[in-house]
């Protein structure tokens, strides 16, 4: 297991380096000039040149890259070319918003998805299954932003159950903070819940017809125990893998969702940075997204060995 983790970490480091190179080059390949964006249309060539040299943009791309990496290794992510604020501070204020939103969305999606999946399996061919299948269809096919707008219109404006926008710090005021995040989290989690629901249903259908479930019934166990300890427990092995794969999509979903609900999160920061060619911010944001992918995957691997004892340390299968 230790060796496994080391291999994983080594691979992760490599991924990070590759990602930083790709982003670094990619950002510079975009049309547009940060100096122009800063100084405005009327700036003289001299002014532009001054800004470029101040930002280090007059050096060769490899030189710029090593300068960037060197700074980053010291914890210095640079300053935003647009506002001059330290990138670290920008991320420090926006990342928690997105993290809370994502975690909330995941929790909601997992609970709803698994519950609906089990219901769909238990009531195969009857109306509860049709209902849950309908939900999955809508969740997968209707775009996030459209669902978000509908939710604001009906749940927030017409019914007034939830605030239409805004953010309250979750740490400082947990209840209110979560209340403000509920609608965005529901919207963000919908497609994930739909995927989980379908996966749970398919996986449950398979496990409930396995030999060990039949044996469990032959032992005279109650329905609930057979369903959860024997059926669901084994179905989750597949579900966890799928959830892990889907979490990446959550980040891009968060960008859209934050936009709709006007949340001051990471997604908003990313969009703004891209529009203004704010190189340092874009680079930092992408690296952090890459890092979070890696962390999520590691977490899924660990979780996987928790639900599936066969791949645990010393397991021989």
């Amino acid at each position: 297991m230790i060796r496994y983790i080391f291999t994983k970490l080594w691979q992760s480091a490599l991924t990070l380096v590759l990602a930083s190179v790709v982003v670094f080059i990619g950002v510079r390949a975009l049309p547009g000039d940060p100096a122009l964006a800063m100084a405005g249309e009327e700036a003289s060539p001299e002014q532009l040149a001054a800004i470029r040299s101040q930002l280090g943009l007059d050096q060769s791309i490899p030189a710029q890259y090593f300068a960037f990496v060197g700074k980053m290794l010291h914890g210095d992510l640079g300053n935003s070319t647009r506002t001059g604020t330290a990138v670290r501070d920008l991320i420090g204020t926006t990342l928690p918003v997105t993290l809370w939103l994502s975690v909330y969305a995941i929790v909601v999606a997992v609970l709803v998805g698994i519950l609906f999946g089990v219901i769909a399996e238990r009531f195969r061919g009857r109306w509860p299954e049709w209902l849950t299948n309908g939900f999955a269809l809508i969740g997968l096919s209707v775009p996030n932003f459209w669902l978000g707008i509908l939710a604001i219109l009906y749940l927030a404006v017409t019914l007034g159950w939830f605030p239409a926008s805004g953010y309250v710090d979750v740490i400082a005021n947990p209840l209110r903070g979560l209340y403000y995040l509920t609608l965005p989290a529901l919207i963000l989690g919908t497609s994930l819940a739909a995927v989980i629901m379908r996966q749970t249903r398919a996986s449950m259908i398979e496990t409930m017809s396995t030999d060990y479930v039949r044996t469990a019934k032959a032992k005279g166990l109650g329905g609930g125990r057979v369903l959860f300890r024997y059926g669901l427990r084994n179905s989750l092995i597949v579900v966890v893998t799928i959830v892990g794969l889907q979490l990446g999509g959550l980040i891009s979903g968060a960008v859209v969702t934050e936009r709709i609900f006007a949340l001051p999160g990471f997604g908003k920061l990313t969009l703004d940075a891209v529009f203004t060619r704010d190189y340092p911010v874009i680079q930092a944001v992408v690296l952090i997204i890459t890092l979070s992918y890696i962390v999520i995957n590691l977490a899924v691997d660990v979780l996987y060995s928790v639900v599936n004892p066969r791949i645990r340390v010393g397991g021989n299968n």
Binding site: T210, Y212, T215, K219, G220, L221, R229, I237, R310
Partner: peptide, 22 residues
């Protein structure tokens, strides 16, 4: 359910697939 496992026991066919792996 009250009879299975109490009055009737089953030894199933394939030992590999009849125990809950988790």
């Amino acid at each position: 359910r009250g009879i299975r496992g109490k009055r009737m026991g089953l030894v199933p066919q394939d030992p590999m697939s009849n125990l809950n792996p988790a």
